[in-house]
């Protein structure tokens, strides 16, 4: 704004007329006001309400009643909460073991392709474009006891697996399905980072006698270190809140084997209509995840400056 007056004065005297503080900043406030109102009403208000509701029994008909810490006491007595926490940690663990390395591996492999690189990239990303509801319908059929996967297993002589109804398989099946759908987007981020590594570095390393593996280990992986850290945290934040696939595919079953914490929140609210306990579960989850989110922001601002 200071520059405005400096530039404007030779052109027109009107622009330099002293204006009151209010008119000077009028548009600044006017532009930001709707967003402030909407953020207040649809983000901050629910967030605060969540904390308040966690001390209340919510009843849409008779009105809310203050119950003190009863909701929290109920949570710590409920054995299913423990199951849900365990399942969530197991789900996060599986997503890393089954899913996290896949995009890194394929990003490096695809970056080395001399031909069909564009095709491989599109093929890897395509499942991400398939709507999730289609995904559920499709994979229920693929995982069917008499579906294509079991047909393939039978051909190689392995006894059929009940991917969905076997307790020890259900969570793994969901993670495989989600990895199939989602690894392409992470792969593209890694690929972009790998392709921006100067080729001379590899040349220099090769002249110094470093083999292919050592080049990957000492040049490629360190160069995408920021992306690896960031995506790992984003994945942890995302999977710690995961519930939609578990809900849509198995409704938390068989025998609570895919009941995640977030799914339990949803079930408390929309199956038991106990919104107070559901809010309290949300508050507890926030306390744990808030720490993760702060770390993520630290890393992402660092990554952004480096890029």
């Amino acid at each position: 704004m200071n520059q405005t007056t400096a530039v404007a004065s030779p052109l027109g005297a009107e622009a330099t007329k002293p204006r009151s503080r209010w008119t000077k900043h009028f548009w600044g406030y006017a532009f930001v006001l709707p967003a402030v109102a909407i953020f207040l009403l649809f983000l901050w208000l629910p967030i605060v309400k969540g904390i308040v509701f966690s001390f209340y029994h919510i009843d849409f008909v008779k009105g809310n009643t203050y119950v003190g810490l009863d909701n929290y006491k109920l949570i710590f007595k409920d054995p299913d909460v423990g199951t849900a926490v365990k399942n969530t940690l197991y789900y996060m663990f599986l997503c890393i073991v089954i899913g996290f390395w896949v995009p890194i591996l394929f990003a490096i492999s695809i970056s080395e392709l001399r031909r069909f690189q564009g095709f491989a990239r599109i093929a890897a990303y395509l499942p991400y474009v398939v709507p999730v509801v289609v995904l559920y319908g499709l994979w229920r059929w693929l995982y069917d006891p008499v579906g294509p996967f079991n047909a393939a297993l039978e051909k190689v002589g392995i006894t059929p697996i009940n991917f969905m109804t076997d307790k020890s398989w259900s969570m793994i099946s969901i993670v495989i399905m989600e990895t199939w759908q989602q690894f392409g987007s992470a792969m593209l981020i890694y690929l972009a980072a790998i392709l921006s590594i100067p080729r001379d570095w590899y040349e220099a390393a090769e002249i110094d006698g470093a083999g292919v593996w050592r080049r990957i280990w000492h040049i490629t992986l360190p160069a995408i270190r920021n992306q690896i850290g960031l995506l790992l945290l984003l994945q942890l934040i995302g999977t710690s809140q995961g519930y939609q696939s578990q809900l849509a595919m198995l409704d938390g079953g068989p025998n609570n084997a895919t009941l995640t914490y977030a799914l339990y929140i949803v079930k408390y609210a929309f199956n038991s209509f106990n919104y107070g306990v559901a809010s309290a579960l949300g508050v507890l989850m926030f306390l744990v995840l808030g720490v993760l989110a702060v770390i993520q922001h630290r890393l992402s601002t660092r990554g952004g400056n480096a890029a």
Binding site: Q241, I265, V283, M285
Partner: peptide
């Protein structure tokens, strides 16, 4: 603030 934590409120 992760959205799932305030999905009910």
């Amino acid at each position: 603030i992760p959205p799932t934590t305030y999905i009910i409120p």
